[in-house]
Design a protein around this nucleic acid. Structure first.
Length: 583
RNA sequence: GGCCCCAUCGUCUAGCCUGGUCCAGGACACCUCCCUUUCAAGGAGGACACAUGGGUUCAAAUCCCAUUGGGGUCACCA
């Protein structure tokens, strides 16, 4: 039975329903080859990143090859077809391909080109073979006609299957339409038997023949469909193991039919569980658009904020749920209306200050685990330990909180030098104004003061905006904590501040240790040794609120003049506040 | 809706194939306390799961069936 896939691949079944298979005898020409085959995009989705990661680990852990192939057969989405911006994301994560598009020293290979749009001749040759053998045929229905039939079927409660009307045409009729230039697709003539998929993680599943109709393998524009291109390329690129997302599971039946018709060998399949949002829905790039639409609706916005989105684009977008804003425009809009878009792409997590090694580690834990209660590991460990046998079947909800915790552990575990270096790289990329304002010495101080309370590389920038403010622009929060720090007790914080000010003003050395040596005795003398009674008012004075790095570090980073200016303004501010509403 | 797949703490998961060592282990989150100049971090405790119902068996989280619930997929997208 050609549609069965027994005895293939070195993977062994596991779990309840997986029949065991004999190990596949390997010979020299049967090196392991995996591939990651995304459509072109500027950004790598975390789900895609995990697929790439597992493909990479499986091949590299077995002295195999990892191929990157770009599936750009959809001309409608080809506006950015040349863009494989995600290459930088893969690179950042440390996932390098042995074969594929040439990018910064990696790529190339003997089985290219690796863009499907450049392989049309190859597909056409195999397509012709199929037609000649009677395994495929031309069909002339338009997309609109098919749509109508599909609608009618669904309305009648039936699933639509292509009716093979084109098969009624005589060879002469077909030829006539073809020479007349009538748009035509090519469909596979399915053999009409059930197909049993043998999946290395899901086990065996039989798809009934009635579920697979004569699907299109070449579109009217002359491009192959995904199904056809995948099967041809996997064969030609010598792919032995296909690891891909579970959403492709039922497609596998089509691919197997195609392999049989073309006389190709069958790679082993492993379908990875989907990565979901906390609410259980599939994590998708569209989630950003959804979040934005929700925010716009909640705010009752009828026109785009200035300098975010073009008015016509805006109207088109609001008028059609199927349209998504360009990522840049979406980000501008989100910034303007103050919403945080969900992190979906690898790039998003990078911007948020996550470490690549942590993302790798955490991603691998979604759908796989090495067992023995091991949770923390690196790429090299994954390479040597990854095994599809241990991939789980259930969808995983992506837990950003746990990711954050892993990131925090990694950051606190770094040497101070490492942290400073990596935080500086992050700052230079995403917060250049901040870096310029602090200067190298200030940055070093801030980095040292921030590491143990940083969960991401971005925290020290996000959390210390007060450092960027001009002294005169600082405002004081009206929160309960601030009230308490400044006005509670007698003497209250503001009083302490006032008596401390001349002492500070008389002091010229402005290092953290010197300041501490100055303020500690003051607290001993004036607040019964409770440093908090003095430190908190100081903090509020210079930071505007009750949260900052350790206070003496904060003062040192800010510098003498700024600190004193802020303290003076603060004392005055709370004096008028107290005068206005005596407690 | 048809078809396919899945089902262990709130979440990621170990255990399931080869039934007993599991009144179910780890991690994140959560709760309590400690530490503390804020926020974190850290330390010590704690609560929390085998979806339900039937079988099989001396014995079931583990095997079988049903129910329920969840996911995927049904394009000239990939």
């Amino acid at each position: 039975m050609i549609h069965r896939a027994h005895g293939r691949g070195p993977w062994r079944g596991h779990g309840r329903n997986v029949p065991r298979r004999a190990p596949f005898a390997m010979n020299d020409s049967s090196a392991i080859v995996t591939r990651f085959a995304p459509s072109p995009s500027g950004h790598l989705h975390v789900g895609g990143a995990r697929t790439a990661l597992f493909c990479w680990a499986f091949a590299k852990g077995r002295s195999g090859r990892f191929v990157l192939r770009i599936e750009d057969t959809d001309q409608k989405r080809s506006s950015d077809a040349a863009s494989i911006g995600f290459a930088k994301d893969l690179h950042w994560l440390g996932i390098l391909w042995d074969e594929g598009p040439i990018w910064q020293g990696t790529g190339g290979g003997a089985h290219g080109p690796y863009f499907q749009s450049e392989r049309l001749d190859i597909y056409n040759a195999h397509l012709q073979r199929l037609i000649d053998a009677g395994h495929a045929y031309y069909a002339f229905e338009t997309a609109a006609e098919l749509d109508a039939k599909r609608k009618a079927a669904t309305a009648g409660g039936r699933a639509y299957r292509y009716d093979r009307a084109a098969l009624q045409l005589s060879a002469a009729q077909v030829q006539e339409k073809l020479s007349a230039g009538t748009p035509a697709v090519i469909r596979l003539k399915c053999p009409g038997h059930d197909v049993t998929i043998c999946d290395e993680v899901l086990g065996e599943a039989t798809i009934p023949a009635t579920e697979i109709d004569d699907f299109v393998i070449r579109k009217a524009d002359g491009f192959p469909t995904y199904h056809f291109a995948v099967v041809v390329d996997d064969q030609l690129m010598q792919v032995t193991h296909v690891l891909r997302a579970q959403e492709h599971f039922t497609n596998t039946a089509r691919h197997m039919l195609l392999q049989d018709a073309l006389g190709f060998r069958r790679p082993a399949y492993a379908h990875l569980p989907i990565i979901c949002n906390p609410d259980g829905s599939k994590m998708s790039k569209r989630d950003k658009d959804k979040a934005l639409r929700k925010a716009v609706a909640e705010r009752g916005l009828s026109a785009p904020p200035a300098a975010t989105v073009d008015a016509t684009v805006w109207n088109a977008w609001l008028g059609d749920k199927n349209i998504q804003l360009e990522l840049d425009a979406a980000q501008r809009l989100a910034d303007a209306i103050g919403v945080t878009l969900p992190e979906i792409n690898v790039d998003d997590f990078k911007r948020s200050g996550y470490l690549p090694e942590v993302i790798i580690n955490f991603l691998a834990l979604n759908g796989w685990s090495p067992g023995n209660d091991i949770e923390k590991f690196d790429l090299e460990f994954l390479r040597t330990h990854f095994d599809p046998k241990r991939v789980v079947k259930t969808p995983a909800k992506f837990d950003r909180v746990k990711l954050m915790s892993f990131n925090c552990d990694a950051i606190t575990g770094m040497t101070p030098e490492d942290f400073e270096r990596r935080a500086a790289a992050h700052g230079n990329m995403y917060h250049p104004d901040f870096m310029a304002r602090l200067g190298p010495a200030g940055f070093t101080m801030l980095a040292r003061a921030s590491q143990e309370r940083s969960k991401t590389l971005d925290d020290m920038f996000r959390g210390n905006r007060f450092l960027m403010l001009a002294d005169d622009d600082l405002c004081w929060e009206t929160s309960k904590q601030v009230q308490k720090a400044m006005l509670d007790g007698s003497p209250c914080g503001a009083d302490h501040l006032e008596s401390l000010l001349p002492i500070l003003e008389a002091h010229s050395s402005w290092t953290a240790t010197d300041l501490e040596a100055l303020v500690k005795p003051f607290a001993d003398a004036h607040s019964g040794g409770q440093l908090g009674k003095v430190a908190q008012p100081l903090r509020v004075a210079v930071a505007g609120g009750t949260v900052s790095p350790p206070i003496f570090d904060t003062l040192a980073i800010l510098g003498r003049e700024s600190s004193l200016a802020r303290i003076r303004r603060c004392t005055a501010h709370f004096k008028t506040l107290r005068a206005a509403s005596p407690r």
